[in-house]
């Protein structure tokens, strides 16, 4: 801890030095973007720019039907396995079917309303992340089953957090990530998604909030898409 203290003391004076340099630099005003070499004044915004930006961004659909359609199309694009179920029983049947087809022996999951239902429907041995867990044991599980906070129609994404989805690793370490969610959790776009997170946690945020869009992927070899680079090779979303 002595070293840490030294580092910290040094860096406190650096903080003042850096902020001092910044303040001095900012005494000069920079031109606004888009004004360079142009004759017309650049476009300006009434409020914060992002608030005007909504219609310019890709859309997620107005009605619930449109939003589901968007999420479905995005999932196909992303190679997310998106399953829509009529009700809870149908959702659990889908889950069991997947478990059987893939020959799951053990799952990793966390305690919550929907994951509890999933775990009891499956009846498989399980690792619960609640009070800590063994990393090697989780790595050996066939699937990680979690809830999510919201689903986003615009991009086919979902948001998991360290508090609502069983920690940081559960949704990314096992080879298959399964998300159980309800239709009401689907929102139109990222703006709505972040607004939901801000409302829900009201300043008391989980330490990790992750926007997950499709299974893990890479294009690092000749720009050819490969799934399952480091995270899950498969992402399944079961929604009812």
């Amino acid at each position: 801890m002595v070293a840490q203290k030294q580092i910290w003391e040094m860096s406190m004076t650096e903080r003042e030095k850096i902020l001092g340099r910044i303040r001095e630099a900012l005494t000069l005003t920079a031109p606004h973007p888009g004004t360079h070499g142009r004759h017309e004044p650049a476009q300006t915004f009434p409020g914060r720019p992002v608030q005007s930006a909504k219609p310019w961004l890709p859309d997620g659909g107005e009605t619930p039907e449109e939003q589901i359609a968007h999420f479905r199309a995005a999932s196909t694009d992303l190679k997310t396995d998106f399953r829509e179920a009529a009700d809870e029983a149908a959702a659990m049947a889908i889950l069991k079917e997947i478990a059987q087809a893939e020959g799951w022996k053990k799952i990793a999951t966390h305690r919550s309303e929907l994951t509890d239902k999933a775990a009891s429907a499956l009846g498989l041995p399980k690792l619960l992340t609640g009070g800590g867990y063994d990393k090697n044991e989780m790595e050996a599980c066939d699937a990680g089953i979690t809830e999510c906070d919201v689903l986003i129609a615009q991009t086919g994404s979902l948001i998991v957090t360290s508090r609502s989805s069983g920690g940081r690793a559960l949704s990314v370490l096992p080879p298959h990530h399964v998300v159980i969610a309800r239709r009401e959790q689907l929102v139109r776009d990222l703006t709505a998604g972040f607004a939901f997170i801000q409302r829900k946690y009201d300043g008391n945020y989980p330490s990790m909030i992750s926007l997950v869009t499709g299974p893990s992927r890479t294009g690092d070899i000749e720009r050819i898409l490969v799934l399952g680079a480091h995270g899950p090779k498969k992402l399944t979303v079961i929604l009812w």
């Binding site: 994404s157 990790m208 992750s210 926007l211 997950v212």
Partner: peptide, 9 residues
């Protein structure tokens, strides 16, 4: 459309 994982810490 968006990158695979965008994570806030």
């Amino acid at each position: 459309a968006v990158t695979g994982y965008n994570t806030l810490y």
